[in-house]
Simulated assay, not measured.
Amino acid sequence: MRYSLVHINNQPFLREPRRELLRAAAADGAQVTHIACRDGEVTVTDLASGDGRVVSIPQLRALARGLCGERTLVLTGLGGARSELAWRATACFPRTTRVYDVYDELSYGARGYSYLKFMVRDGIWRALCPRAMVMVDGMMRIYPGAWKVENASHLEPTPRPGGTPPAVYIGSIDERVDFDLLAALGERTDIDIWGAVHERAPWAHAVLERLVASRPRVRFLGGYRNEALGEILSRYEVGLVPYHLNERMTRHVALDKLYHYLNAGVGVVTTPLPHAVRLKDYVGLLNGAGGYEAAAAEALARRAGWRADEHHWRARWAHIKTLIG
C-alpha cells in the first residue's frame, strides 16, 4: 500500500513542528511533501530529494494529483496557520484527504481581538477539513470525532552520565515558565537553562537576566540546534518542566520536552500540568520547591518504565497509517 503525506503550513521545513513525523513517514517509504505558504509564496518540497520549488496556486492544483497516493493524508492548519495561502493550498487537495492539525492548544494564549481572530481562522480550518487531529484528550471535547495522536520524540535512549550533574531546563523561554519556581529551585540545586526567549515574550530577557544574576547555581547556556538535542541531554540526569498551572497555554499542552527527556533517558521533574499528571507513572510531580528532592528521586526511579520505542515518531506514523486506512 502506497502512502502519501502532504503537510501544509506557514513555516519552512527546518522550523516545522511536525518535521520529525514527516521524516519518520519518509523513512517508512511514504511519499512525503512539505508545502510552506509564507511571504506570499508557496514552496513545495519533496522530502526524498530535498528539491523545492516555488509554485502558484493553479500550478499546485495541477500538481496535487501526483502528490496523492493510494492512501493520502493532507495534514494542515497546525497552530491555526495564519496565511490565507495555506487555505488556498489546502483547497487544491481532495476534501476527503484533509485533516486539520490542531496540535495541542486551541488559542496559544490569545486573548481579546487576537482570540477572536484565532476563532475565525479555526472556523475556516474546520470548514476546509472534515476531520481534526489533536494530541490530548481534553482537545477532543472541543473537536468531536478528532483523531488523537499523542506527541512523541525522535530521540533514542543514550547512556546517562551518573553522579549529580545539574538539572536541566530546555526549551522556549516565555510566559509558561514559572521564574519564581526556578529561583526557589536555584537555591537548592544547580540548574542549566538551554533555549531562547520567544519572540512573543521579549520581557523574559530581563527576567532571565535577573534570575541568573541572583542565583549563582543557575546558568543560562543559550540556544541550541534541534540536531544537538540528544547530545545535550546526554549530559543530564534530571530534566525540569517548571511551568505555571492553570494557564491557557498549559491547560492542554502536550510538551515536546516531556517526550524528549524521557526518550533520551532523563528523569522528569514537572509541575502537575494536566498532561504531566496523565504521565505520572513515569515522572516526578513537583508541588513547590520544597518537594524537589523527593520529586527528583521519583523521576529517577520511574524513568525506567518508559518505553522509548512506543513514543518515537515512527510509532506515531504507524498509528496514523491505521487511521488513514
Rank of each mutant, 00 (worst) to 15 (best):
R2C: 10
E20M: 08
Q59D: 07
H312Y: 08
T322I: 06
H252K: 06
G265C: 12
M249E: 09
T76C: 01
V32P: 12
T72L: 00
E105T: 14
L279E: 01
A91I: 10
Q11Y: 14
R15E: 06
N226Q: 14
S214V: 08
C68E: 05
I35Q: 11
R126V: 02
A132L: 03
E70Y: 07
D174P: 05
P159I: 06
A27Y: 06
H260V: 02
I191K: 02
D104K: 00
W87Q: 06
L221G: 13
I142F: 14
A289G: 04
G80D: 09
E298N: 08
W87T: 07
M135C: 08
Y243K: 08
Y292H: 05
G80V: 11
G186Y: 00
G69A: 14
R219P: 08
W147S: 04
A308G: 11
P12S: 13
L75P: 07
G195K: 04
I142S: 13
R15K: 11
E105Y: 11
A81E: 12
R219E: 06
A301C: 15
A167M: 06
L262Q: 15
K280D: 00
D122V: 04
E84V: 14
V197D: 02
E199W: 04
H252C: 12
L116D: 05
R53S: 00
D190I: 05
D104R: 00
P12A: 12
R23S: 13
I324C: 11
A228M: 03
F13G: 09
L208I: 10
A62G: 10
H252W: 13
V6W: 10
L22R: 09
S172D: 07
A299Q: 09
L323G: 12
A91N: 10
E231N: 13
S234E: 03
Y115L: 15
G52F: 13
A184G: 05
S107H: 13
R215I: 14
R225D: 15
A304N: 09
E247R: 15
L67I: 01
A297L: 11
T72Q: 01
Y143I: 00
C92E: 04
C129E: 09
L233I: 02
P165H: 05
A289E: 09
G163D: 03
G162M: 12
D180I: 02
I232A: 08
G267M: 10
R248K: 10
H244Y: 14
A276F: 03
R141Q: 15
M135I: 03
